[in-house]
Amino acid sequence: MAAEDKPEYTTGEKWRRAGLIVRGCKRSLAGENVDLSDIDSKLDRIDDQARKRAAKKK
């Protein structure tokens, strides 16, 4: 993701992203074969919402 492509996050989105990242880290400690696709998709959804909001603001 390029720097200009990075959306501006609200405080709630920052907290949700932080929680998901921590959850992913905890799962990664369980082993190499752990599926993290659900956490990745949730992070992508937050990014998409932030991009849509930024595009609407312009």
Rank of each mutant, 00 (worst) to 15 (best):
M1L: 14
M1P: 08
A2K: 10
A2I: 03
A3D: 12
A3Q: 09
A3L: 12
E4F: 11
D5Q: 10
K6A: 12
P7M: 01
P7S: 01
E8K: 10
E8W: 06
Y9I: 00
Y9C: 05
Y9E: 06
Y9L: 13
T10G: 04
T10S: 14
T10Q: 09
T10E: 02
T10M: 08
T11A: 14
T11P: 09
T11K: 09
T11F: 03
T11W: 01
G12C: 06
G12L: 06
G12N: 11
G12Y: 09
G12H: 05
E13D: 07
E13Q: 15
E13P: 06
E13L: 00
K14P: 00
K14L: 14
K14W: 00
W15T: 14
R16D: 11
R16T: 04
R17L: 15
R17K: 08
G19I: 03
L20K: 00
L20W: 00
I21Y: 01
I21L: 05
V22N: 03
V22L: 08
R23V: 07
R23A: 14
G24D: 03
G24F: 00
C25V: 15
C25M: 13
C25H: 12
C25F: 08
K26D: 10
K26F: 05
K26H: 07
K26Q: 11
R27K: 15
R27W: 07
S28H: 09
S28F: 08
L29R: 09
L29D: 11
A30K: 14
A30G: 05
A30R: 15
A30Y: 03
A30V: 08
A30I: 13
G31Y: 00
G31N: 06
G31L: 09
E32H: 06
E32Y: 08
E32M: 11
E32P: 11
N33K: 11
N33V: 06
V34N: 02
V34H: 02
D35W: 04
D35N: 13
D35I: 05
L36S: 02
L36K: 03
L36V: 01
S37D: 12
S37G: 06
S37K: 06
S37P: 03
S37Y: 01
S37F: 03
D38V: 09
D38L: 11
D38G: 12
I39K: 06
I39P: 02
I39H: 00
D40H: 07
D40V: 05
D40A: 12
K42W: 08
K42I: 07
K42T: 10
K42H: 09
L43K: 12
L43V: 13
L43G: 09
D44K: 15
D44R: 13
D44I: 10
R45G: 15
R45T: 14
R45N: 14
R45V: 11
I46N: 12
I46A: 14
I46M: 13
D47V: 12
D47P: 01
D47T: 15
D48I: 13
Q49V: 07
Q49N: 12
Q49M: 08
Q49Y: 06
Q49A: 15
A50K: 05
A50R: 06
A50V: 03
A50H: 04
R51Q: 09
R51A: 11
R51K: 15
K52W: 04
K52A: 09
K52C: 00
R53Y: 01
A54R: 04
A54M: 08
A54T: 00
A55H: 02
A55K: 08
A55V: 07
A55M: 01
A55N: 03
K56M: 10
K56S: 05
K57R: 12
K58F: 04
K58N: 07
K58H: 08
